[in-house]
Computed example of a mutant assay.
Amino acid sequence: MKENMNMTVRVGIASNHLIHPTDRFGTNFIDYIQRDYVTGLRQAGTLPVVLPLGDPKDAEDYISGVDGLLLSGGQGVSPILYGEEPLAEVAETDIYRDEFEISLIRAAQDAGKPVIGICRGMQIINVALGGTLYQDVYKQAGATEKHNQYPTSWEIPTHHITTAEDSWLNRILGERFAVNSFHHQGLHEPGENLKVIARSDDKVAEAVESDDGKIIGVEFHPEMMRVAHPEFQKIFDYFVNLVQNNTHN
C-alpha cells in the first residue's frame, strides 16, 4: 500500500521523552519519536499521530482519538512492574513511560483496537498482559547470539529468526530470515492470550501474536531495515490493514 492523501485511519505512536540533559537540548526536555516509525506507517497508507507521554488516567482519551496503537523501542522496562528486583544489567529504565504505555495498551485492548510493539514495545505489551521478562537474556536465558549489534549500522541484519507455521509473520516474510537487533531484555513468560511466534537460533523470543490477532509485536526493528530491505515494510502494511479492517467492521 502506498502513501496517499486519503488516509482514513489514524495510528497513535506513544512518544519517548528525554530525561537527561543533552548537548543539543540542555535541560529543554522534549517528547519525541524516531521518524522511521512515522515513515513506515505513512508508507502503509495511514495517518500517524504522536501521543506525548502523559498521565495514565488520560490513556482512554488518547486511544479514543486513534484507530490503532504503535509502541516503539527505547529504555528497558522496569522489573518492578512484573514483581522482580532489578539486576545490575538492567541499565536505564523509565517507570513513567512504562506506566503510561501500559495504560494505553489496556485502553486499546478494552476498545478492541489493534496494537503493535517493536522491541521495547513488544516487551511492554507482554508486561501489560501479565507476562514477565528476562532482565538480561545473556545472564538469565543463556543467549549466545549478538542481540545488540551496536555499532553495526542499524539497517544491517545480524542474526536469523525462525517463525511459527501460519503465524502472521510467517505469512508475510516466510519461515526464516535475518533481522537486526538492539536489546538485552526479552520475553520470559508470555502474557495472557499472547503466544511467541518466532525465535532466534538461541531461543530468544522474536515476535508475538495475541489469540485474537489484534496484538502483534517484533523484537527487531523493521522501521530501520525497511529502506535497505523493502520487504520489512510488509510489517507496517500488515498492521495498517489490520487496523483498517478492524475499523471498517
Rank of each mutant, 00 (worst) to 15 (best):
K234D: 04
H188F: 00
I13K: 05
G83L: 11
E223C: 10
A91W: 12
Q135A: 10
I30E: 03
G26K: 04
N4Y: 11
F25Q: 03
K234R: 14
L87T: 10
F25A: 09
N245R: 00
V9K: 14
P48C: 11
D98V: 09
L169D: 11
L41E: 00
E219D: 10
G142E: 02
K2H: 06
V137H: 10
Q135C: 08
G112W: 00
M225Y: 02
M225V: 10
T158Q: 01
D31V: 08
P48I: 11
Y62C: 14
Y134V: 02
P222T: 13
I63M: 08
Y37N: 14
D201C: 06
W154T: 10
E189G: 04
L53W: 06
Y96I: 13
H183S: 13
L133E: 02
T158F: 04
V204Y: 07
S167V: 09
A59D: 00
A205D: 06
F239K: 12
D31L: 03
M7L: 13
K113W: 03
Y138D: 07
S72K: 12
S103E: 00
H160T: 05
N241T: 15
L41V: 04
V9L: 01
F182I: 13
D211F: 02
V179S: 01
D61Q: 10
N148M: 03
I105W: 06
I172W: 11
E175Y: 03
I161V: 07
D58F: 00
A88E: 15
P151D: 04
H184M: 05
V137Q: 04
L47Q: 01
L194S: 04
E60Q: 15
N249S: 14
T158W: 02
Q185I: 07
N148S: 08
G213D: 07
E219G: 14
Q149R: 05
D212M: 07
R120M: 03
I13Y: 01
W154V: 00
E3K: 15
D98L: 10
P21M: 04
D202A: 09
V204K: 07
L70E: 06
E85A: 13
L87Q: 11
Q109I: 14
N249R: 08
P230C: 09
H184R: 06
E84S: 13
P230E: 08
